[in-house]
């Protein structure tokens, strides 16, 4: 630790400042400025909240906004419920070589593009897909069934695509839980349920929170999965942003949507951190 202001210090400070200022902070300020202007003539703009008012006054936008939030929270919750036992198994029950093997197996699917994974689910779920064919072959259904293009399909895809980001932090925190703490819990008369509630969950809390935050953000900001697995009516908020920017070329409204998304994610993450008494640095760093 040096506290001197040497040349080296400024050389190390420069890249991080350039990166954060030019690629993150100033662009977002610019985006904020764009969202707060209104086109009043050709090439002429005025300061206004019109874009945010448009957002608030159009039910389709609001409904999509709320739907995206609720579905993302639900996806986060399901991912936690599905992933926790697996993380627990890998961290505490798997013995010897099995443990690293299972852990790597968990990671493997996520080194491939999300597009590939989503495509895989399309092959499985669509009307001519594997599961439909399997159900017909088993005689459970008479004709082809369409399992794609609905909210359940979106949910399957979201949970699948975020699983890694839940399992890894959970395994990491759970494997630091000393077995003797669990044994002590039993020895003092605890049951599986009470040991789980009072010892395992509190210990895993940082991992749970960090997993949930990442999964929530990924679901909220996801574009591919809802577009490809969802139906015609199942809009996702990122689709609105995209269409304003690329299709309608209404950057002002798109920027306003972007800020609503940012606001939503920040608010929910902030509430989650406050409720659980964790901090962003602690859970992410």
């Amino acid at each position: 630790m040096t506290s001197g202001r040497s040349l080296g210090f400024y050389l190390l400070l420069a890249p991080v400042l350039l990166w954060l200022l030019l690629l993150v902070i100033i662009p977002h300020i610019d985006l904020a400025l764009v969202s707060l202007r209104e086109r009043v003539g050709v090439g002429q703009y005025a300061f206004s909240f019109a874009n945010f008012l448009t957002f608030l006054n159009e039910p389709l936008y609001l409904v999509t906004f709320a739907r995206t939030a609720v579905m993302s929270i639900l996806a986060t919750f399901i991912t936690l419920i599905v992933g926790f036992p697996v993380a627990y198994f890998i961290a505490k029950m798997a013995r010897g070589k099995l443990q690293p093997i299972l852990f790597v197996l968990c990671l493997v699917p996520f080194w491939v593009s999300e597009l590939v994974r989503t495509f895989g689910w399309m092959i499985l779920l669509r009307e001519t897909g594997i599961i439909s064919s399997l159900l017909q072959w088993l005689g459970l259904v008479n004709g082809p069934v369409e399992l794609l293009y609905n909210d359940a399909a979106i949910m399957i895809g979201l949970v699948y695509t975020s699983m890694l980001f839940m399992v890894v932090p959970l395994v990491t925190t759970l494997s630091t839980l000393d077995d003797s703490l669990i044994e002590a819990g039993y020895d003092l008369g605890g049951s599986s349920a009470s040991v789980f509630r009072e010892i395992i969950v509190p210990h895993a809390m940082p991992g749970i929170v960090s997993g949930c935050i990442v999964v929530f953000m990924l679901s909220l900001g996801n574009y591919l999965t809802p577009i490809m697995l969802g139906g015609k009516d199942s809009l996702w908020f990122t689709e609105l942003i995209y269409s304003q920017f690329i299709v309608r070329f209404n950057w002002e409204l798109g920027a306003a949507f972007g800020f609503m998304l940012l606001f939503l994610s920040t608010a929910i993450v902030w509430v989650a951190l406050k409720l659980t008494g964790q901090s962003l640095e602690k859970t992410m760093g």
Binding site: D178, A184, Y186, D187, L188, G190, E198, H203
Partner: peptide, 21 residues
């Protein structure tokens, strides 16, 4: 009798005090 019902208690080698409480 499972461990949580036995009338014996144990002081663990590294004590195993619950850090979350």
């Amino acid at each position: 009798v499972p461990p949580n019902k036995r009338p014996v208690n144990m002081v663990f080698q590294h004590l195993a005090l619950f850090p979350m409480m």
